[in-house]
Simulated scan of single mutants.
Amino acid sequence: MTELSERAGVPIPTIRYYIREGLLPPGNLTSPNQATYGEAHVHRLTLIRAMVEVGEMPIAAVARLFQHLEDKNADEYTTLGLTQYSLVRTAARESTLDEPGAAEVQELVDRLGWRVNDHHPARAMLASAVRTLRRLGQEDVLDLLERYAASAHDLAEAEVGVVLERDGLDNRAEAVVTVGVLGDAMLAALRRLAAEDVMTRALETAARDANG
C-alpha cells in the first residue's frame, strides 16, 4: 500500500478509507498482512481524486456512482444515464420539480425539441438557477438562456461522440465521468479566462473611444 500511495499521490489513511467505503477494491492478498495493487488501483484512485477534489463530489455520491458502474444487470442506456445523473450535485437532485422555474425549464426543453427524461436531476438544478435570477431581477442574464442551451448542445454532441468512440460499457461510463467532472472544470476555467479577455478588450476600446 505504501507503493500505491506513492504512485497515486494519495495518503495511506485515505486509501484505507476508500477501501472501507467500497470506492476502491482491496488488493490481492499475498499474506494475512500483505496485499498487492496494480495499475487498475492507481487508475481508480486518480478517478476518485478527480471526482472528489475537482468535481467536489461527496464520498456518498461517488460511492453511488461506482455502484451504478458495477451493476451489470442494467442495460447500457440505463447505466450511462445513472452515471450522468450521479454527477449532479445532491442539493439539486433532491429539489422538487414543481417549484417556480420548473415550468420555464420545461418550456425551454419543449421549444428546443430536446428528448430529456422528466426526472433528470439537472432540470431541478436549472430551475433553481432560473428562480434565483428572477428573484434577483437579473432578467438580462436569463435572456442568455437559449444561447447557453445552444452552446451546451453543440458541446454535448462532441462530448457524446467521445464517449461512444470508447469500446465497452466500462470505458464509456468512465468517459461520462471524466467529461462530466473534468470537462465541467475545463469549461468553467475557460469561461473565466475568456471573460477576462473580452472584458479587457472592451474596457480598452471604451477607454480609447473616451480619449478620442
Rank of each mutant, 00 (worst) to 15 (best):
N73K: 11
A60Q: 11
V109C: 06
S95Q: 14
W114I: 00
A35Y: 01
A61W: 06
A158K: 05
A156Q: 10
T30Q: 06
H119A: 14
E76C: 02
S128W: 03
V179M: 12
L4C: 04
R89K: 11
D167L: 12
D140Y: 06
M199T: 14
T46E: 14
G101I: 01
K72E: 08
Y148W: 15
P121G: 06
G22H: 09
A156T: 09
T83C: 08
R115K: 14
D143L: 08
P26Q: 05
A63N: 01
T30R: 08
M186P: 00
D98T: 13
R131C: 03
T96H: 14
E76L: 09
L29A: 15
I59C: 00
G38E: 09
E70K: 03
E56I: 14
E53K: 14
A195V: 07
E39C: 11
T30H: 00
V181A: 01
E56P: 07
D110C: 08
Q84L: 06
R123S: 07
V130A: 04
N33K: 12
L133V: 02
V179H: 04
A92Q: 11
G101K: 03
L69P: 00
R172A: 07
N28G: 06
T178V: 14
V179N: 08
Q67G: 12
T96D: 14
L164F: 15
R166G: 04
M199I: 11
E165P: 00
A158Y: 04
D197R: 01
V109A: 07
V179D: 00
E70W: 00
M186R: 02
G113L: 07
V105M: 08
H68T: 13
T83Y: 04
N73L: 10
H41K: 11
L4K: 02
A202M: 02
S151N: 12
A175R: 04
S31T: 10
A63H: 05
T178D: 08
G113E: 10
I59V: 13
E104G: 06
R49D: 11
L164P: 02
S128E: 11
R134Y: 02
A189T: 08
R134D: 07
E39K: 11
R20A: 08
D71E: 09
A40Y: 13
I19H: 02
V181I: 15
T79L: 13
Q34M: 13
L87Q: 10
T132A: 11
P121T: 10
R172W: 12
A102H: 05
Y17N: 11
T83H: 05
M125Y: 09
S128G: 09
R49G: 15
V181Q: 03
G137S: 10
A158W: 01
E174A: 11
N73M: 08
E3I: 01
